[in-house]
Amino acid sequence: MTPLTLFWLASLLLLSIGIVGLITRRTLVGMLIGVEIMLNGAGLAIAAAAKCTGFSEVHGQLATLFVMGLAAAEATLVLAMILVVQRRFGKVTVRDISVIKSRTEA
C-alpha cells in the first residue's frame, strides 16, 4: 500500500463521516459541520495526490489553499443564512423550513 493510498483512505473516511453527519443532523448548524468535514477531506486528497506523485507539489498545495478559502467563504455565507432563517422561522430545523414565500411574513 503506497502512502498515496493511505492518505486517500483518510480523506475518504472524512467524506463518509461528513455525509453521515449531513444526513442524520436535523439542524442547519449540524449540517454545516458535516459539510466542513467533507471539504477538509477534499483538501487532504488534493494535497496528497500532488505530494505523492510526480506532479508539481506547489500546484497541489495551492489548490488545497483555494479549497480552504472557499470553505471559509462558504461558512460565512451559511452563517448569514442561518441567521436569516432563525430570524424568520424562529428555528433552524430543516423539517420546518419548507416555506419559500408566505403572505403572513413581511
Binding site: T27, L28, I33, K91, V92
Partner: peptide, 9 residues
C-alpha cells in the same frame, strides 16, 4: 463561525 452559529440560534 460554527460556534457563532450555535450560539446565535
Amino acid at each position: 463561525l460554527v460556534f457563532f452559529a450555535i450560539m446565535l440560534t
